[in-house]
Design a protein around this nucleic acid. Structure first.
Lengths: 361, 361
DNA sequence: CTGTTAGCGCCTTCAG
DNA sequence: CTGAAGGCGCTAACAG
């Protein structure tokens, strides 16, 4: 494919040469003045800075990256941002990166593997100094991430991490959190607990499922394979599977959902059928999305420290960046940070003890 | 400030020179083979392509941008993404940009003006080919956007547009939408309608407020200035102001909120006070965020075609890009696209006629 | 079809 | 304190 690009060279950016000419000095001096090098006469520096300002000088990162081999920029790779999870993580990460003097560039792939690969290459070609990422639900081949490592640029995974890649990562204890959530259901009297699991390509999906299974085992509740379904995280599938559950001869009396959007979509189906939550069926989600406290009844869920996940990912990356160590981890185990979750019990799993009602005014 | 960067040049990227040497040909030939130039012997091309693959060759966009003067990259600037509005717009925009062969880079500033300025300069220094943006609520000085125009790079505003800048933009008819929403409240019998408006720095905030005022005027409802408050879009303020409203000697019987998060926070306050929605007070929001259909009662709101807003913004930018016209709009009015909104009436403003109840099973 | 040369904008020696 | 020269990786124009 040979693409002809239209020449969009309109108003020329001013370069250091332009301002060097104006001032009748060499471009080296201009460069030094601009970058804050100590060996420049104060007067010269001022002249340069003033003229630069006046001429709208905008340093060319492309050229800079070309010589410097690094750009002071970090790439962030996320699969989606329709839930509040990733936006919030990004917020936390950005906070730390900015404080460290790094700019952040975000790439979003809408759960598309091809897009993810393209974005990784884009970031690589931008010569970002590091990348933090959560892969798509489609990602089974991690070669593009290996490429990142081979280029020696630090990489940190969060949330959706990879087992086959030795990459620093920050996660929560999905297994224990799921176990605790399901135990909560068991302790509140539920016995036929269904689980809507995510795709096997996601490690936290597998871990949460294992937590679910082990909770049942621990409490000697027989496992009914018919009550456990893996799906692709699309809302349509939730509806189909949930309807299926409810129409079972022996329907579940509780649902543990892989995440909050799933739980919420499931609640919708339950309500449409005219069942009551939590009386007829209890629902528990995962992540404590913003919407979890909004739905009616309010959703019991596992809260994740999203801001901290972002912050920790950033710190981990910064650490790699500063250590200057070879980031291929051939000789060492990549560091892994595990953050705490918290089960938030709301109305979707436990009946409210008392309903207070005040009159108007 | 003179910062010393650690030399992070680890595994060297392979360049066309490396592969030229290996193959004992010139780098021009390699370049031609790689870019798909027709004048290359098929055999040579294959050799180059194979070796490139084998050596993890990753074309250096920096160098490319340096020579080509454009980067095939678009910058997207958003103030926040805690509501579903901006994520959804980005989704739509990305769809169009990708189809046109552009990569998208997102910058997020968390409503900080300084951050916005920094991000604009970053994008400029990256030499992006175009920018679509929604400014922060703090932005009153648009010099950084003027800078973009002066550099001749196309710019499109969406949602939060600027009056003092002649920039193509895509918006909805905030005024009429607000008017319709408030008329809905009036027609369903409300008379003391409060309004929580956004800051004056946001044009759509001003337009929605005007729609509110004109709806009252049109229906000869006296305007009570005490029922209208502008605030900074933080949840804490919503709570304070809403409490204030409810404690008024003559409290409002309806609220028109600048956006859905505001409406939802207000509902929370109402519920805490023990009042019923919509019986005691009706609530109407704006934008039809994902959460609008989740809250209880479900929120009446004005739906915005967020995906289309993104798509249209992208199309507008592409158009500017292709026209190659000087994007300073000194001689012409910048194009403006206005998209349709739709009032979605839900339970927060109108009592449900019948409550159907089915038994279990 | 292929090699040579020049230059994009910047920084970094190396000499003054 | 400042200038000259070289090079980062790539493409484009000009010769073959």
């Amino acid at each position: 494919m040979y693409v002809l690009y239209p020449l969009i060279m309109k108003t020329k950016y001013t370069s250091i040469i332009d301002i060097a000419k104006q001032l009748n000095i060499s471009k080296s001096t201009v460069s030094r003045a601009l970058t804050g090098h100590p060996n420049v006469h104060a007067q010269t520096r001022k002249a340069v800075l003033d003229l630069a300002q006046q001429m709208d000088y905008q340093r060319n990162s492309l050229a800079l990256g070309l010589t410097r081999h690094h750009t002071n920029t970090i790439g962030v790779l996320v699969p989606e941002f329709m839930s509040t999870y990733f936006p919030s993580v990004i917020l936390g990460a950005q906070e730390v990166f900015q404080a460290a003097g790094y700019q952040v560039v975000i790439c979003h792939n809408n759960e598309s593997y091809d897009m993810e690969v393209a974005n990784v290459k884009l970031l690589l070609s931008y010569r970002v100094d590091g990348i933090i990422a959560s892969h798509t639900k489609e990602t089974r081949n991690f070669d593009h991430f290996r490429l990142v490592q081979r280029h020696g640029i630090p990489l940190v995974f969060f949330n959706r991490v990879s087992e086959e890649l030795n990459v620093p990562n920050v996660v929560v204890d999905d297994y224990s959190a799921a176990l605790e959530a399901v135990e909560h259901l068991i302790k509140t009297g539920r016995r036929r607990i269904a689980h809507l699991a995510g795709p096997d390509s996601l490690i936290n999906s597998r871990l949460r499922r294992q937590g679910y299974l082990d909770a049942l085992k621990k409490h000697k509740i027989p496992i009914d394979p018919g009550l456990m379904l893996s799906y692709d995280l699309t809302i349509e599938k939730v509806r189909i599977y949930m309807k299926h559950f409810l129409e079972l001869p022996a329907p579940p009396d509780a649902l543990f959902a892989i995440n909050d959007p799933t739980a919420i979509a499931a609640m919708e189906v339950v309500k449409e059928k005219g069942w009551s939550i939590p009386e007829d069926i209890a629902i528990v989600g995962f992540s404590n999305d913003f919407s979890a406290q909004l739905v009616f009844p309010r959703l019991t869920t596992v809260s994740q420290p999203t801001l901290d996940i972002g912050r920790e990912s950033a710190r981990l990356l910064l650490q790699e960046l500063q250590s200057g160590a070879k980031p291929d981890y051939t000789n060492r185990k990549a560091p892994c940070v595990q953050l705490k979750t918290k089960l938030i019990i709301r109305d979707s799993s436990v009946r409210k003890p008392v309903v207070k009602k005040k009159g108007k005014k």
